[in-house]
């Protein structure tokens, strides 16, 4: 098992740079292009959610990402100290395609994560928020 730890500033550019690094790491350890793309998508959504919602779009705050790479799965742990999520239920994306005036412009990130990851857990305790994402891999690593 390999563990990697990263800390970034709470801004979109830092998220983008970090996710680019993770993509290279996944390619290096032999993850499939499909799974790499899905993980890239989910990490971008999860980390950008922290920037936008937990920290209100303000830079200068800390986001930690801990990665555990196993042969058959990957676990990501995102730690931050911003505002906790209000709704921690299973994400839904329901809209009426005929009601064009009420299409959602947001709220798609958690839905995407829920669809592409195998499991997620969110907890908040004493100002520390932790979001864990787990993905089982079809192609073994290393």
């Amino acid at each position: 098992m390999i563990k990697k730890n990263y800390t970034i500033n709470s801004d979109y550019k830092s998220v983008s740079t970090l996710v680019g690094e993770i993509k290279k790491l996944l390619e290096l350890v032999g993850a499939s292009p499909k799974e790499t793309g899905e993980i890239q998508m989910c990490l971008t959504e999860a980390l950008n959610n922290v920037v936008k919602h937990s920290y209100g779009g303000k830079p200068g705050n800390e986001i930690q990402l801990n990665i555990s790479l196993y042969k058959e799965r990957i676990e990501f742990e995102i730690l931050e100290y911003g505002l906790p999520r209000k709704n921690t239920g299973k994400p839904k994306l329901e809209y009426d395609p005929n009601d064009i005036n009420n299409l959602p412009e947001g709220g798609m990130g958690l839905f995407i994560i829920d669809k592409l990851m195998d499991s997620t857990e969110y907890s908040s305790d004493n100002g520390k928020n932790i979001f864990i994402l787990k993905k089982n891999l079809v192609k073994k690593l290393f």
């Binding site: 959602p104 947001g106 798609m108 990130g109 995407i112």
Partner: peptide, 14 residues
Amino acid sequence: YISSAGLGVFMAYV
């Protein structure tokens, strides 16, 4: 690559 933030732009203008 496209994330939900990009998708949201299309939703906003359609």
